[in-house]
Every structure is written in C-alpha cells, then in structure tokens.
C-alpha cells in the first residue's frame, strides 16, 4: 500500500479497502505483550513509544505488512532491548531453545 518516498508505515491519505469492522478479543499473550511494553515505557522508562514505533517501521515492508499487530510489537520490543543491551541475542536464542524443549503443555 505504500508508494515511493514514503516509509512503509506512512500511509495516511492513501486509498484502501472497505473496513473490516468485526470486533476482536485480545488473546492472552497479546495482552502480555502490551503489559510488558507499558511497564517498560511507564514504570521502568527503558523504552519509549517512539522507539517501539521506530522498531516496527524498521521491520521492513514485507514484515510490516504480513505480521500481526502484536507480532510486530514483540519483534520491536526484542530488537530495542537488544540494542540497549538489556538482553543479548545469545540469551534470547538459549531461552527459545529451552522453550522448544519444554513438554507441550498449555503455556
């Protein structure tokens, strides 16, 4: 939907399809992403809303358009925390492996 000279997120004024006005219940993991972000922004001041948005915009055109809303959020939160040195990619990699090895009970 973007056009030359515009960032992938910069879509105000472009055309689009009719709205899908169906209501959406948030999944629990989506609320956790949201709550994490609010804590990092509010109480702990580790991230800002602008940094979240910048991280989302830097996902690039394909990812920006294909990923679901909170997929983009957690991707940006992780990227920002790496950039700030709060987490390292080794830590995240190890943790993801550990998660994969857990028995498949309800998370």
């Amino acid at each position: 939907m973007s056009e030359p000279g515009r960032g992938v997120h910069d879509i105000g004024g472009l055309g689009g399809d009719a709205l899908d006005r169906s209501e959406h219940e948030h999944e629990f993991w989506e609320k956790r992403v949201d709550a994490l972000m609010m804590l990092l922004v509010g109480k702990y001041e580790i991230l800002t809303v602008d940094e979240l948005r910048r991280g989302i915009e830097q996902l690039g055109e394909g990812a920006y358009e294909e990923l679901a809303y909170y997929d983009r959020w957690i991707a940006s939160i992780a990227a920002n925390l790496l950039e700030k040195g709060v987490l390292t990619s080794e830590e995240i990699g190890r943790k993801l492996e550990e998660i994969d090895e857990r028995p498949p009970v309800a998370s």
Partner: peptide, 24 residues
C-alpha cells in the same frame, strides 16, 4: 497458568514473548 487461548503449537512471536518476558 491463567487463561490460555494458545491452543496448538506456539508461533515464533508467541515464543519470543515468552522468552523476552522470562528473561526480563
């Protein structure tokens, strides 16, 4: 433990959320 709506295998981003939250 609380309400889970994550039936089936977790997506990459759901796993990333788990990883980031647990590490923090």
């Amino acid at each position: 433990a609380p309400p889970t709506d994550e039936a089936g295998p977790l997506s990459y981003y759901q796993r990333l959320e788990l990883a980031v939250r647990e590490l923090l």
